[in-house]
Computed example of a mutant assay.
Amino acid sequence: MTRALLAVLSLILPVLAAAPADAATLPSKSQWQADVRQAMQGSVTYLDRRVPQGGGPLAIVLDIDNTSLATHYAWPQPVRPTLRFARHAHALGVGVFFVTGRYQDSLHGVRRTLKQAGYTVTGMCGRRHGEALAHGKQRCRRQITHAGWRIIADVGNRASDLVGGNYERGFRLPSYGGKLS
């Protein structure tokens, strides 16, 4: 039995040694915060330049999890660079919409949580059951634009947050290869 165990270990150990030790881990909270600050760099300046150009009622769209709320690192605290961006947009008269991959029928307490975190909520849209994530987010942005809003910025941490257009500029926060929801 010992020889069989040694034989198995001799096959497994080289594979384990070759795999990076932290392949499944996420960066520290401080590293994530630095990466978010980097991703949002220039966002407030963008608003200051874009808003005076007008073009109808203007809006920004924010994802919720790990974009607006620190779901993984500090629930239910806000993601500070996103909150600054949203507050600045609101102060400039821009609508603040939340478009999420969460299902529409599960958003009851989320509006309250966002408000407690310091956000103004002009509107909120989630996906429908059976609807693909990217499709739901595209549908929500189309609904906002069909209601007369011009989306000047879209902020999210996943590719699905920015697929399909209906916005002028995107800001992509880190998801670390999809490991951070």
Rank of each mutant, 00 (worst) to 15 (best):
T2E: 01
T2A: 03
L5M: 09
A7K: 10
A7E: 03
A7M: 03
L9S: 14
L11H: 08
I12V: 15
P14C: 08
P14K: 13
P14R: 04
A17V: 12
A17G: 04
A18T: 13
A19K: 05
A21I: 07
D22G: 02
T25A: 15
L26Q: 08
P27I: 11
S28N: 09
S28E: 13
S30N: 10
S30L: 11
Q31W: 03
W32I: 03
A34V: 09
D35M: 01
D35Q: 04
V36C: 13
V36I: 12
R37D: 15
M40L: 15
Q41T: 14
S43G: 03
S43H: 07
V44Q: 08
T45V: 09
L47V: 05
D48L: 13
R49E: 15
R49D: 14
V51C: 12
V51E: 11
Q53K: 13
G55S: 01
P57C: 03
P57D: 14
P57I: 11
I60H: 02
V61W: 00
V61F: 02
L62E: 11
L62Q: 04
I64F: 04
D65F: 00
N66R: 02
T67P: 01
S68W: 12
A70Q: 07
Y73C: 05
A74T: 04
W75Y: 15
Q77K: 12
Q77N: 10
P78N: 12
P78K: 08
R80G: 06
R80Q: 14
P81M: 04
L83G: 01
L83I: 02
L83W: 02
R84P: 00
F85H: 15
H90Y: 13
H90N: 12
V94Q: 06
V96M: 04
F97Q: 03
F98P: 00
F98Y: 08
V99M: 00
G101Y: 13
R102A: 07
D105A: 05
L107N: 09
H108F: 09
G109H: 12
V110T: 15
V110P: 01
R111M: 13
R111T: 15
R111F: 04
R112K: 15
T113M: 11
T113W: 09
T113P: 00
Q116K: 12
A117S: 02
G118E: 11
G118L: 12
G118A: 13
Y119P: 04
T120E: 12
V121R: 10
V121M: 08
R127G: 14
H129L: 10
G130N: 12
L133G: 01
L133M: 11
A134L: 06
A134K: 06
H135K: 10
K137D: 12
R139T: 11
R141F: 09
Q143P: 00
I144R: 07
T145P: 00
H146N: 14
A147K: 07
R150N: 08
I151V: 14
I151D: 01
A153Y: 08
A153N: 12
G156F: 04
N157C: 03
N157L: 07
R158S: 13
A159E: 13
S160M: 05
L162M: 04
L162F: 06
G164A: 02
G165D: 02
N166I: 01
N166A: 06
N166Y: 07
E168L: 09
R169L: 05
F171L: 05
S175C: 14
G177L: 02
G177F: 06
G177P: 01
G177D: 03
G178Y: 09
G178A: 06
S181A: 15
